[in-house]
């Protein structure tokens, strides 16, 4: 997708992909043939630039077709540059500006509670994203309202647009911050499936208040020259790099 469009965000898509795969395959109650089913679980990709990762999952799940993936960043395409609920089946939130998704997920969780529904709200945040102040408005409010049906996965890939987070804005003890805001916190390895499943189980069993998984990930996971490389936060591979990436991923077609 990103190579074809020659634009987009491969790094954060690759860091989130194992988490999304586990979430969609084992947890989310959704209906690909009825994407607007009112009682579905909600998934909010707050780091909406990492859309290629989500589109790949939506295609695997059958919300969109493999052909639709070619519409990424193309005029009229369901795969807009940032995930958009008005354009793409299976997308619950129109993302693009960081720091907004947690609030939206909180609204979805409140609505579920008012409906006496068991449905869950899941939100994926980027780690650089939590530098946005409104994330902490939402974190405080969600704990105040004791939203046990609000579940966050933080993609801790340690890189943001310009550089490593450590150089841009140190965030110190991230788990302690969330605990201090009143959240249930668990740290996992975001590329180890057993660890991820354990984390998702923790989310589903933590009903006393909002919960967060802090997933240690590698930006650009799986492609040697993208891994841990701030240069591939928002850059497309060239033809040569693309061929190498496909080879490394074992894609032959």
């Amino acid at each position: 997708m990103v190579h074809r469009a020659q634009a987009g965000h491969p790094g954060g898509s690759l860091s989130e992909i194992d988490l999304l795969t586990a979430l969609y395959r084992t947890q989310l109650r959704v209906r690909p043939d009825e994407p607007t089913w009112a009682d579905r679980d909600r998934f909010v990709l707050s780091k909406g630039h990492a859309s290629p990762g989500m589109y790949a999952i939506l295609a695997e799940m059958g919300f969109i077709s493999q052909e639709d993936l070619k519409s990424y960043r193309v005029k009229g395409g369901v795969c807009q540059g940032h995930v958009d609920m008005k354009w793409c089946p299976g997308v619950d939130f129109s993302a693009g500006s960081l720091g907004m998704g947690l609030s939206f997920g909180m609204g979805a969780a409140l609505a579920a509670r008012m409906d006496n529904s068991e449905r869950q709200a899941y939100v994926m945040l980027g780690d650089g994203e939590i530098q946005e102040g409104s994330v902490w408005e939402a974190a405080m409010a969600a704990a105040h309202h004791e939203l046990g049906n609000l579940n966050v996965i933080l993609d801790r890939n340690r890189i943001q647009n310009d550089d490593f987070c450590e150089n841009q804005m140190r965030m110190f003890d991230i788990p302690a911050k969330w605990r201090a805001f009143g959240w249930n916190v668990m740290e996992i390895d975001g590329h180890d499936m057993a660890s991820i499943l354990e984390g998702l189980d923790f989310l589903s069993k933590s009903n006393t208040g909002p919960s967060i998984l802090i997933a240690q990930t590698v930006k650009g996971k799986g492609i040697s020259f993208m891994e841990d490389n701030p240069g591939f936060h928002g850059a497309a591979p060239n033809d040569e790099q693309y061929a190498l990436a496909m080879k490394e991923l074992g894609v032959t077609a």
Partner: peptide, 9 residues
């Protein structure tokens, strides 16, 4: 945005 999430529900 909480309001938006509720409107979408």
């Amino acid at each position: 945005l909480v309001a938006a999430g509720m409107a979408a529900s």
